[in-house]
Amino acid sequence: MQNTFNQATFHTICDELAARDPDMKAIIDTYGYPPMWSRYNTFETLVHIILEQQVSLASALSALNKLRERIQEITPARVLLLTDEEFKACYFSRQKTAYTRYLAEAILSGQINLHEFEAMPNNEIRSRLTALKGIGNWTVDVYLMFVLQRADIFPIGDLAAVNALKKVKSLPSGITREEIIEVAAQWQPYRTVATMMLWHWYLSKPKKS
Rank of each mutant, 00 (worst) to 15 (best):
I28D: 09
D21F: 12
F154M: 08
I156T: 07
W37A: 14
F117I: 03
K66Q: 14
E116T: 08
T30V: 07
L129F: 04
I49Y: 07
F43E: 02
E182Q: 09
I156M: 09
V168T: 09
A184T: 00
T9I: 08
T130W: 01
L103E: 03
L203V: 04
E69Y: 08
S59T: 15
Y143P: 11
A58C: 01
I156C: 00
A184H: 01
R191I: 02
A8V: 01
D152M: 14
R150Y: 09
S93Y: 12
T4W: 06
F146L: 14
R70K: 14
W37S: 14
R94M: 07
P172K: 13
E85L: 08
D15M: 00
A161P: 08
T9Q: 11
L46N: 05
I153P: 07
S170K: 10
L159F: 06
A119E: 14
T45N: 07
L57H: 13
E16Q: 13
S59L: 15
H11E: 13
T192H: 01
P76S: 06
G157E: 05
T97P: 10
N3S: 15
T130K: 02
I153W: 05
S56P: 12
L67C: 10
Q7H: 11
S93Q: 13
F117R: 10
T130R: 01
F154L: 05
T176V: 05
E116A: 10
Q54W: 09
A26N: 06
F87G: 04
R101N: 07
T192V: 03
L103R: 02
Q53N: 10
L129R: 06
L51K: 08
R101K: 15
L171Q: 05
M196R: 14
K133L: 11
T97G: 13
K169W: 02
Q2T: 11
T45E: 01
G174H: 02
M120H: 09
K66W: 06
W201A: 14
C14S: 08
E85K: 09
A194Y: 07
I28G: 10
F10G: 11
E118W: 00
A18T: 00
T9L: 12
A77W: 06
N41Q: 08
I135A: 05
H115L: 07
I13C: 13
R20S: 12
L82G: 10
E178I: 03
E86I: 02
Q7V: 13
M1R: 04
P172F: 06
T176W: 03
K88V: 04
I107N: 09
E44G: 11
T139G: 08
